[in-house]
Simulated scan of single mutants.
Amino acid sequence: MKIKQLYKKYKSIIKFGIVGCINTGVDFFTFTLLLSIFGIDKLVCQVGGYSMGVINSFVLNKLWTFNDKKEKVNPIVQFAKFVITNIISLGISLVGLNILSNKFYINVYVSKVIVTLFLQVFNYVVYKLFIFKGKANKQLAA
């Protein structure tokens, strides 16, 4: 396949990856700021960083990744579904971060990377199938 065809076929996954990198940057920046500068507990830092990433993620994924600009969709309901999904992800991340860093003694930042990578796959599937139903999803279904 040509590069253009590959891009067209996997456009939403590529965009999701870019948005994920931006979200991860926002998350890690907030996490590091709270942990290093303010000395807050790592699990509280995880909640703060993750929350900032979620807000960024909703906006960028809705408008860019999944091109979901329908006016018929109630954005409040959609955001609520998004938040519920991310609360589940946050719970998984807290358990994963705690187990990897406290039980397996893996560096907290390495633990965070492992947990984040796992959750990227989980979140993409849930966003694509249950939350955003824009043009990107219709193109993939065809």
Rank of each mutant, 00 (worst) to 15 (best):
C45I: 06
N67K: 15
I76P: 03
N98R: 11
Y10S: 12
G25C: 09
T116I: 10
I106S: 00
T30A: 09
P75S: 01
V47G: 04
Q120H: 04
L60T: 14
F38E: 15
F66T: 04
I114H: 02
G20A: 14
V47Y: 02
K62G: 07
S36I: 14
I22Q: 02
Y124R: 04
L129E: 11
K135I: 15
G39H: 13
V108C: 12
S89I: 03
Q139M: 12
I3Y: 10
K70P: 04
S111W: 05
N23D: 11
F79S: 05
F66C: 10
Q46D: 05
A136K: 06
Y109S: 09
A80Y: 11
V44G: 02
S111L: 10
L60A: 12
K70F: 10
K62T: 06
C45W: 01
F29Y: 03
A136P: 12
G39C: 09
L140D: 10
V110G: 07
V126F: 03
G53A: 09
V110F: 12
V110T: 11
L90N: 00
I99W: 03
I131H: 01
N107F: 03
V77H: 13
G49W: 00
L63M: 10
L35V: 02
V95T: 11
F118E: 15
K128R: 11
K72F: 09
M1E: 08
L140R: 14
I92P: 00
Y10P: 08
V115K: 01
Y109G: 05
Q139Y: 13
I3K: 14
S93Y: 02
K69F: 08
T65D: 15
M1H: 12
V126M: 09
T32K: 06
N86L: 05
V83F: 04
